[in-house]
Nucleic acid binder design. Structure first.
Lengths: 203, 203
DNA sequence: AATTTTGTTAACCAAATGGTTAAACCATAT
DNA sequence: ATATGGTTTAACCATTTGGTTAACAAAATT
């Protein structure tokens, strides 16, 4: 059971590394802890990934590539702004409830190492605002929504959706909520947030 | 010049520690680096603060105590909801532009160690939502603002104000902005954000 | 002026940490 | 069965890191 050529050792490592890196960050993570969680010898980490840095990058890229398509929903599909916001909000919040460490991990590590995002930008799937901008300006011209800079609207959408997860401990403390209450609050936000945004911009 | 009883050595350490901790976090910070930045011997850090943990807590408490009063503006003064939102938004964004590392530092370290906030909660000045809730519900009853849960409104205000700073590298990348453009965007948000919120809730 | 207290430094220490190595293991092709 | 080549392990290594110590210098106290 042990010495079989385990095709999935590499994946077990990645899964363990994901767990440790996402909850403790690059600096807080320990190679030994990752090995323990994966149930293998520490040398294997280096055998498959060479170094802590490279293992980390593998985890980070995976995380980022999971988030990017979510954003593209808001940017590149063909429905109206109102539809987009509704869809994105419910989808994104559901998505994050399944991957609670993701946004904080990505944001934290990008702040630690801002040049990192340059590599991401080269990716074909990297979110691009052009279409969204055009659409916002059109709907403004048509009188469907009130004037607003597309960039600011985009930031607002991101903020309202992502922040409550990034700042979870802070929010729990201010609201005086236990985990269940917090979760309920996030559930409610699936409609709350889109209503809030649409109320603000709809004519 | 060297062996004078420098009354401010302790503060030099705290200032250096603030810089290093806020940009690298607890795990990424090195005692030697803090000593170097303070221009003193590493042993002094321990002489004045005993351990890395205690030095970190001194920095963290200072940071938190700087942020709390900002929030109390929105919660405990006597102006209308609309006034409060306007004041808070301009004040808070100005404040953060002067202390750019603050929000991310606090959020990051609270996520790393959520029990930490329990100590904060004991503090008399810890933000309390009660008054704000009452006021929101009154203005709803009077028909000044549309129905909304006070907690959700509070989260929205926080999100719209804080998130753009926490996620700076992400936003710069999506918007394709250099530092100057980013700064301009944040300046604009001083009015943008309050308009956005008020548009959404005002009857 | 002598002595005690406080501040400061260089040198040191033990533990932790990322990484390496040499040997063992094992499935498979020969 | 045996050689082969990827896989795995235990032991090891060099460096980093938080923390300590002993000696010394400058004030403060007597």
């Amino acid at each position: 059971m042990k010495k079989t050529k385990d095709e999935n050792t590499e994946e077990q490592i990645l899964e363990a590394a994901k767990n440790i890196f996402q909850s403790k960050g690059m600096d807080g993570a320990r190679m030994q802890e990752i090995a323990d969680k994966a149930g293998i010898n520490k040398a294997m980490l280096h055998y498959y990934y060479r170094s802590k840095q490279l293992l980390f990058e593998a985890v980070f890229n995976n995380a980022f590539l999971l988030l990017a398509p979510q954003l593209n929903t808001v940017l590149n599909d063909d429905s109206s702004i109102e539809e987009k916001i509704k869809n994105f909000t419910t989808n994104y919040i559901s998505f994050i409830l399944k991957h609670p460490y993701l946004p904080n991990f990505v944001i934290q590590e990008l702040n630690r190492n801002p040049e990192f995002i340059l590599k991401m930008k080269e990716n074909k799937e990297f979110p691009n605002l052009e279409k969204f901008k055009k659409q916002v300006n059109e709907e403004i011209k048509k009188g469907i929504i009130k004037p607003i800079a597309a960039e600011q609207l985009f930031i607002n959408i991101m903020a309202l959706n992502i922040f409550p997860f990034v700042a979870k401990p802070l929010i729990k403390a201010f609201i005086n909520a236990d985990d269940e209450t917090y979760l309920q609050l996030m559930e409610n936000r699936k409609t709350e947030v889109s209503n809030f945004i649409i109320n603000s911009i709809k004519h």
